[in-house]
């Protein structure tokens, strides 16, 4: 298949950046989206142009490195799919594909389509952990955990930190990301101990960094490659209110 690509090019964080259009022929429908970009880059290099910078690593949908805003959707048109899992057969022959970086004030562009997502780390540093030193743990089976809750905690912990929720949200809100982590720990007895402190600290950090608020538009849920439900956000709000109003 032959395609046209409209790609955001930006030399570095300081420069302005603009779209460039490229034609790419003989694209195989079996190719992954990133492999198609590999192909494009080889073509660009052979023409003496600068290849497009992108973040990518595992290429099997679990590391969360990749993330492109493709034709108006983070990670492209397919549901529950990361950019690296997306195949070219999802596009029609001859189509124009617009590729943009995830946009948010908290995700500044470093180069081309490669962004800085360290804001996510900062939120987690504020409290996204259980304070248990190596060596302090009791025997693993000493605290039984309700299977349903444990499974739910897993669903929340499935977040890969790719940032699609922020990218999809009209307000560039990180609520789903933060909620997933808060929920994971709030559901487990091990995490309950510091639940109130955790939610207060993480939400405060999220606000301080400048992420938008939640309009309950649910674009995050629609584009989360791991299908994390917005019910997490409701539960976080509950945890937050509890921490602010009830907890000491």
């Amino acid at each position: 298949m032959n395609i046209k690509l409209k790609i955001w090019r930006q030399k570095n964080a300081q420069s302005k950046g603009k779209f460039e259009t490229y034609s790419l022929n003989d694209v195989s429908p079996e190719m992954g989206f990133l492999e198609m970009l590999d192909y494009l880059n080889q073509e660009l290099i052979s023409k003496g142009e600068d290849p497009v910078a992108i973040d990518h690593d595992c290429r099997e949908g679990i590391c969360g490195s990749c993330g492109l805003y493709i034709n108006g959707q983070p990670h492209g048109p397919e549901p529950k799919t990361t950019t690296c899992e997306l195949r070219m057969r999802s596009f029609k022959d001859g189509s124009l594909i617009t590729v943009e970086p995830f946009r948010s004030r908290m995700f500044p562009v470093i180069k081309d389509l490669l962004i800085d997502r360290s804001a996510f780390d900062k939120i987690l540093i504020a409290g996204g952990f259980i304070s248990s030193n190596t060596g302090t743990a009791p025997e693993a089976n000493s605290i039984p955990v309700c299977k349903k809750k444990s499974d739910k905690a897993f669903d929340m912990a499935a977040c890969i930190g790719c940032g699609a929720c922020v990218a999809a949200c009209k307000n560039a809100s990180a609520m789903l990301f933060v909620a997933a982590k808060i929920n994971q720990y709030a559901l487990l007895p091990q995490g309950k101990v510091e639940a109130a402190e955790r939610v207060k600290k993480m939400v405060a950090k999220m606000d301080e960094l400048g992420f938008g608020s939640c309009s309950n538009t649910y674009a995050c849920e629609a584009k989360c490659p791991k299908g994390i439900s917005v019910s997490a956000i409701a539960k976080m709000n509950r945890e937050f209110l509890h921490a602010k109003i009830v907890a000491e």
């Binding site: 108006g72 617009t98 948010s104 004030r105 908290m106 999809a168």
Partner: peptide, 12 residues
Amino acid sequence: ARPVKYAVSNTS
């Protein structure tokens, strides 16, 4: 929170 807007608005 999003000073640079998308060229293609969200279609999801």
